[in-house]
Design a protein around this nucleic acid. Structure first.
Lengths: 207, 207
DNA sequence: TCACGACCTGTCCACTAGTCCAATATGTAG
DNA sequence: CTACATATTGGACTAGTGGACAGGTCGTGA
């Protein structure tokens, strides 16, 4: 099991990657999504690596992606993670380190370089508005689960991805989502997103 | 090795924790820092859990801490991670899940519940300085018509409605929209909306 | 115990969204 | 003139979405 797949500009494998994962496969970025039962490693040197990451995750949401960067940088790390990557690390990491990353990511963890971790989290905490989304009257009518599904969808996830995130069936996502549409008086996910993204800003208006 | 240590209000161990880690030890929060060669699990129900977390990490920086929360909440998750916790998860997680968390954290990973992950990272990305290429320039690559269509869709209109507003065919809307997706590196209208709404926020922030 | 709500799942069906291949018209730069 | 970008549409097709209808468990409160 767990055949790792490297997506690189030239479709070439570096020796140390092969040393870390002897079974590893490689392909060029243009090929689109790869079907891997292991981890998809994506080089940040690809011309359109963010788009490639998006395509990959859209095609196989269950296969975790890790972005490898020859010159790690906080900004790119955040873009990678925001794009759905589950890890971000130096392309020249040692085979042992790569295996650590693989282990962590395959067990549901998130891998960020230790020096980036505190910055990422710190930035996220500062971005939190004081007591944000503690309770907007509009969403009080939603059941807890409906709210979770709504939030997942508001993050841009498809039904399938939301189901994966919450550990339920796509069908159940639809059920909760349908109930949320009904209660909030919107007709589709797009208007739900607009409602929710506008909720934090317009809180002062409702107060 | 790896004796796990639970810091709880009463110094009591829940059965499921013991089931996950038969060797686990427990102590009350007031006792100060514990010396554990495994993971320190800290209950968010402690009166001063953040202070306790700080004391623990100051005393034993090498021992990773995970915060357990009976009622997980995004805000507390960020506070925990900002305080140096390496993981944040539901206090009622199954023994199997707890072992997953332990595995990830002990190998240098970060554990955030899947439902929190994208929100945390999204918040961090939005807090990023709007440096360089990621400003309004992003939409400069769109042709005028593509931008009009994108805006219509970002207002929550369906393809049919957008076509009506712009006086063109639904088919043409799809064409422009598809081109916009490609140029912006997003996969569907929902992510386009998130991208555009995020851009507006950061534009105001820079102004 | 029974009713009720939240939660989870299934099937079937209509509609929407997104992509592929292709065609036409118009302007502009070389 | 030619090449290229832009704008416009068509048809066909696949995937994704949302609704209707029909079940199932579980816990709380009457």
């Amino acid at each position: 099991m767990s055949v790792h797949h490297f997506i690189t500009p030239g479709g070439m494998l570096q020796p140390r990657w092969q040393e870390a994962f002897p079974e590893a496969l490689a392909s060029a970025g243009e090929a689109g999504a790869v079907d891997s039962n292991g981890i998809v490693w994506l080089l940040a040197t690809l011309p359109e690596w963010r788009a490639a990451l998006g395509r990959q995750l859209a095609a196989h949401p269950a296969a975790p992606c890790v972005v490898l960067d020859p010159q790690p940088e906080e900004r790119r790390a955040l873009l990678a993670l925001d794009g759905g990557a589950r890890g971000y690390c130096h392309a020249q990491a040692t085979p042992a380190q790569l295996r650590e990353v693989a282990l962590v990511v395959q067990h549901g963890g998130l891998w960020i370089g230790p020096e980036l971790m505190s910055r990422v989290v710190g930035a996220a905490r500062r971005a939190l508005p004081p007591a944000a989304e503690a309770g907007d009257e509009r969403f009080a009518m939603l059941s807890p689960r409906e709210l979770e599904v709504a939030r997942a969808v508001a993050d841009g996830l498809s039904n399938k991805e939301a189901a994966l995130r919450l550990g339920i069936t796509e069908r159940t996502v639809k059920a909760h989502l349908g109930a949320a549409f009904e209660k909030l008086g919107v007709r589709d996910r797009l208007q739900l997103v607009l409602l929710m993204s506008g909720a934090t800003e317009s809180r002062e208006a409702t107060a």
